[in-house]
Amino acid sequence: MIKYGLDRITELKFRSFQPIIEQRDEQWVDIALRFELEPETEVPEDLIDFSALVICTIDGTIAQIVPHDEGCDCEYQFTVSEKEQITAFILQPAVQEAIRKLGSPF
C-alpha cells in the first residue's frame, strides 16, 4: 500500500478474495472485493473497513483497481504487486465467466 504524500510502502499479500460482481450499465461491471490477508501482512492501522473496487468492461477487461475504506475511495493506492495479485484473481476463468454472464443478453 502506498499512502498519498508519504514515501513509505508496505506490501499486502492476499490469501483469498470474496467478490460481489454487479453490472453497472451496458459497458461496465463493478466488482467489490473483500479479502483475507496472509498472516504476516497487516492492513495500515488508519483503515477501518478495507476493501477494493475493480471496474471491468463487460468482457472482463480490467479498467481500474481502487482501494476503498468504508466503501469509499481512500488516500491509499495499491502497489504493482498488489494489483498483480488482484488481477490474477479477476482473470481466473470462473470470475471471467461470471463477468461475461452479466453482460450477456438473455
Rank of each mutant, 00 (worst) to 15 (best):
E82S: 08
I20D: 10
P93C: 05
V29T: 08
E36K: 14
C56T: 15
F89P: 07
S51N: 02
D25I: 02
Q27K: 12
S81R: 12
K83R: 15
D69K: 07
R24D: 04
H68F: 11
T41L: 03
P67H: 06
T87L: 06
T87V: 04
C74A: 02
I31M: 14
T61I: 07
E84K: 11
I86Y: 04
L53F: 00
A94P: 05
F78D: 07
P19T: 06
S16W: 05
F89W: 03
C74L: 01
A32N: 11
T57A: 04
S51M: 00
I31G: 01
C56L: 10
V54G: 07
P44M: 03
L53Q: 13
D73R: 14
T79I: 09
F17D: 11
D30N: 15
E75V: 13
S16I: 00
P93M: 06
P67L: 08
F35A: 03
F35N: 01
V95M: 14
E70T: 15
I62C: 08
D73E: 12
Q27I: 03
W28M: 12
D30E: 07
C72N: 09
E36F: 04
D69P: 00
I86Q: 08
Q27T: 03
D46P: 11
G71Y: 09
E70R: 13
G60Q: 04
I86E: 03
I20Y: 06
E36S: 14
I90R: 00
C56H: 03
D49E: 13
I90F: 02
Q23V: 02
E40I: 02
A32T: 10
E45N: 14
E45H: 10
W28S: 05
E84G: 12
Q96F: 08
I90Q: 00
E97A: 13
L91I: 05
Q64K: 14
V95T: 15
T87M: 12
C72Y: 09
Q77S: 15
T61Y: 05
T61M: 05
Q27G: 01
C72S: 10
C56F: 07
C74V: 02
Q96P: 12
I65C: 11
E82L: 10
T41D: 11
A88W: 01
D73P: 13
I90G: 00
S16E: 12
L91R: 14
Q85Y: 06
F78P: 07
Q27F: 09
T61A: 04
S81M: 08
C72H: 15
R34I: 00
Q96V: 04
D49L: 06
A94C: 03
E36P: 08
Q64A: 13
Q77K: 12
I62V: 15
Q77W: 02
I55W: 03
I62K: 11
A98P: 05
A94V: 06
P19Y: 02
A98F: 04
A32F: 05
Q92Y: 03
Q64R: 15
E84S: 10
P44G: 07
E45Y: 06
P19I: 01
C74W: 03
C74D: 07
L37D: 08
